[in-house]
Structure formats: C-alpha cells, structure tokens
Write a protein that binds this DNA or RNA. Structure first.
Lengths: 299, 299
DNA sequence: CGAGACGATTTAGATTCTCTAAATGGACTG
DNA sequence: CAGTCCATTTAGAGAATCTAAATCGTCTCG
C-alpha cells in the first residue's frame, strides 16, 4: 500500500464535504483529478472506500476508518512542520498564501517588500482566489495563510478551526454616477430606489448577500440591473452611468474612478482579515507574516 | 510543505543505516534517486536535514526530529493497512513479496497456484532479490513478506522487528565430481583437502560465511578455487569436474546434475523461512500467504 | 604520498505519474 | 422529459522521478 499526500487530503476532505467536486475545488484540482486519485487510493487499499449513492458518492466504513488514519497523518505533518520551523531558529523556508484579487494588487507588493527586508530567507508563494474560496483553502491546508474579507454586519459561520485576525476596517460608501444625486451629504440606502439601478455581485457570494441584506434592513429591495463579479468592472459601470454600487477605499485605490462617492447613513462595513488555521497560528513563519500584515495595516 | 512516502522512508532508513547508498539498496533505488529525494525533502522543509561528515552524511537535529515524525506516520500507515485488511472481511488486495532466486523458481509457482485457489482476490507481486537482501527489504517495508534462508549452525543477528517462520529444513550434502572420491558413505569435511578445490560463494554472503565457518570447525580451511555467486553455476562447475561444493535438495531440484552427492558427517543445515515484520504478522493477507507457504512445506 | 575504493551529488535523458479538458453516463429536478 | 448535477473515463500535455554515468571530495592502505 502506497499513498500520496494528495490522496490522503482528498479522502479527508471528502469526509468533510461529501462530493468529489467540492473536494476538487477546495484542493484546487479538477474533479477528474480527484476522482482518479481516490480511485488509485482505493485500488491500493484493495477495499472499496467509496460507494455511489445517487449522483454523489459516500465513504464506506473502510473509507471512514482510513480517513481517520489519514487525518492523524496530516496532523503529524502539521506538527512536524511547526517543529521544523521552530528548530530553524529563524524565519526561513516557504509559506503558501492565498489572497482575493484586490488584495493581490494592493497588499501583496508591500507585504512582499516588507517580508523581504525583515525575513530574507522566507519565500512567500501566493495564489489569487475568489474571496469566498480563501477560507476553504486555509482550512484544507492548501495554503497556510490567506487574506480574506468579513462582513461583520452580515456574519456567516466559518469553520471553527480557522482563526481570523483583523487587518483593516473599511466603511462602504455609495458610488453613484457623477451628478446623479442632488445632494452630497450622507445618503440612506432607503432613498436609492428607481430610477437608480444596482450593479451587484451574485447573491451566492458573501458580498452580494451582504449588500442585499443591508438594503433589506433599510427597507428596500435593491433592484438588480447588472450582475457583475469583478470589482473593477463594477466601478467602470458606475462611472459609465449605468447604475449604482457600493465601494470602499481599497476598491477605489485599485481603480481610481470618476463618480460621486457618498457616505452611507446605514452601518455597512467590511473587514480585511488574515485567515489561518488555529493549529498553525503559532508557527513562526505564519506568525511572522501575519505580523507583517498587521504592521502594514497600522501605517 | 509537501512530501512523499518515498521521502519519509528514505529519511527513516537513513537514520537506521547511516549512508545514502545503504538506504538506496534497502529501498531498491539508486543512490542518486535517494539523494534527490532527500534534497527535495530538505528544500521543502526549509531547514538542513543532512550534514556532510567526511564522505558520508549525517542527520541534523532537525533531521532526527523529522525522522521521528516520519516514523510515526509510517506506523500509522501500517496500522491503517492492517485495519483495511481486517475490515475487508476476506483476503483481498495486494501483497508485495521478495524471494531469493531458487525460491522464485521452485516455490513461487506452487505458492501462486495455491493462493489463486484459496484466495482468488489476493494479488501477490514478487521480486527476486539476492538472498541476503530480503531481510532488509522486509524490515524497510519495501515488501510485506519474503522467503529467505537461515543457517542455524552459523546464526547471525537479524533486525529485532523481524519474525521468521520455518518452512523447510534442509541438510547440506557434499557435491563432488562423479567418481572423484573412492567411497560413497558419509564424508567428513576434514577429509576434503587437496587435490579437491572448493567452489564457494563470497565470504561476505551468509552462505559463503556459513560454509567456511563449518569447515573451520571441522579443522580445515576450504581452499577457494572459484568464487561463484549463482547456485546453478556452482553446480555446473562441480559437474564439469572443476571442484567441490555443498548442495541441498532444493538446489538439485533447480538444476538436476550429474555428480556424486555424499552425506556430510558434520551437521550443516539451512532453513528456508518466511520473513515478516512483527508488526505485520497478524495482517490477514500476510498471515494467509504465510499459511499457504507452511501448507506447501508440509506436503 | 599516491592510487584506488568509497560515498554523495549532479546531470541528462527516459519513463512514469498525474494533471486538465472534454466527453460520457447515471440520477435528480421541475 | 429536458436540463442540471455529479462522478467517471479518456486522451494528451506537462511535471515528477527514476537510472546511468560523470564528478568530486574523503578515506585507506601499500
């Protein structure tokens, strides 16, 4: 019997998530790849580990038992990694991280510069992920650290094994085409009805849900005119006079725009946070980079 | 940090054996491969794991610590394998084994036939190894089961984690060119001096050491005429009148020969044994195949 | 002291693994 | 019953990892 790290991770994630597709997206593979890995693991185990049930798949008893062992192996791996970093006596080695698009553009460069100065032996590798995916990436061990977003006014449950460190607190403002509203003081969402249409992210994203929730609390249902995922695209549409949206400073830094930005009466915030596994919180490399992020945030 | 099974095994074996070359031969790789694997492990660890000391290499503190974790992971793997086999409720899956050359020819076929009948879902994979290497192959986990040889009159220390099961007990006889000795009763090694020269395996093999030791106990130093590793080649040389050697029934079965076979006065035996790791002794697949071997031996 | 053995490492190249993309085929859903 | 969801299979591209051979430092022994 011979296994790979990927196979063990796939099995453990399958227990958590229940579908091959979900495992694949959590681990950053295609479903086909995960299916093949699990197939290989099953062949080398000699015992069925999965059972098709309806259009999905379920772990057999043997699969569950093996997943338990796999989890223990991954735990040892985590402990070994932490111990290696401690024993190095200095910050060195590699750290995998994930960031949402805007953070890659606006935070990563300064962070890398600072890490390069203070911890020259640490190599930080990063990948850009859709913001709602970075939590899973951390939880499943694909990355050690992520920069993500929280909407404290519309909180959602996170995996309890995750720890979140506040970096920046940003207040949302209303972005409206230049001159389209006759005043420039604080605006209530309740007064954003027609003819102003909304440019919104899909409701199945945390951001999309948060905007809608805040609007509903203010007593309006935002009229979806254009569903847009990309932040810069949203801003371009507002600038073009197509509709209204919400913005933060970081979003404006990414794409300086010519439209009116009005404070909101309603409280609507987002937090830019660092996300780590609780078990990795005290790893020197992880702690060091989190510290760099906090330092940058303080400036 | 990501690692493979091979890397962990290499590290653990390096702690046991001390040289990359020894690890390589124990795991069935070239030294270059092991060196590269350890290098990759070291890179992903970010900390030096090895230190060159003279012409060999030594584990650093970090390397030792990691080897400890690796050992624990391999232990879990072993436990998981055993549990999977138990949970299968029947003998199924794969079993890796190693045999010395003669055993491949004379034992493996019957064994596979019997396994095929009684455990049709079990796939046995085998490799031929030089007999002195099969113990390491079992101990290091490269195979689960081996057929090896013991020389009870000239015992040597084995890894204490190994268990040995007696299959066949064979008495050595003296093989001499036809008609070269004027009697045909039991012969003492003490009377094998010139003009009869010996055909011997190298002294750094267990067999070679055993013959020499037994001869010395009988008061003679066997005169090495031709050093030969391969059993069939030895017999061919005796048949050709080149010298004398020792033989067993199994060796004669492998290569029926025309020379005189005389009983020895001195006790000189070898045992054909099954070799397993103590920790794998009770794995259903392992126990099943050992049982088949014992059954065959009883016939 | 110098030649040879030993042991680790590096390199180039071949093989094997393992991904992705796309096609396939059940199974739910409305 | 058409469309969607999900797992799997396939072919092929790219990456990982092995071997063989060369290299280099170190030890041993005449």
């Amino acid at each position: 019997m011979d296994w790979s790290s990927v196979q063990l991770r796939s099995l453990v994630e399958l227990r958590r998530r229940g579908t091959v597709t979900a495992v694949a997206s959590a681990l950053g593979y295609t479903p086909g790849a995960v299916s093949q890995q699990l197939g290989a693991l099953e062949r080398s185990a000699g015992v069925p580990l999965l059972r098709r049930v309806g259009r999905r798949v379920e772990l057999t008893d043997a699969g569950l038992a093996l997943a338990g062992h796999a989890q223990r192996i991954l735990d040892i791996e985590a402990a070994a990694t932490a111990e290696l970093e401690h024993s190095a006596g200095r910050i060195a080695g590699e750290l995998q991280m994930a960031l949402f698009a805007t953070a890659v553009a606006e935070i990563l460069p300064a962070m890398l510069a600072r890490v390069g100065e203070t911890h020259p032996d640490l190599v930080v590798r990063s990948r850009e992920l859709v913001v709602d995916d970075v939590y899973d990436a951390v939880a499943s061990g694909v990355v050690d650290l992520a920069v993500g977003l929280e909407y404290p006014d519309v909180p959602i449950r996170r995996d309890p094994s995750l720890r979140v460190v506040l970096l920046y607190r940003e207040r949302f403002s209303l972005a409206v085409p230049a001159g389209s509203l006759p005043w420039d003081g604080p605006v209530s969402l309740a007064r954003t009805g027609p003819p102003l249409g909304w440019i919104l992210p899909p409701e199945d994203t945390h951001y999309g849900l948060a905007i809608r929730t805040v609007c509903r609390r203010a007593g309006i249902e935002p009229e979806l005119r254009h569903e847009v995922v990309d932040t810069a695209v949203s801003l371009a549409l507002v600038e073009a006079g197509i509709g209204i949206s919400t913005v933060t400073d970081l979003m404006l830094r990414l794409r300086p725009s010519r439209f009116d930005v009005l404070p909101l009466v309603e409280r609507f915030e987002r937090h830019i946070v660092a996300v780590v596994r609780a078990s990795a919180e005290h790893r020197p490399n992880v702690a060091a980079v989190v510290e760099v992020l906090r330092d940058l945030a303080r400036d």
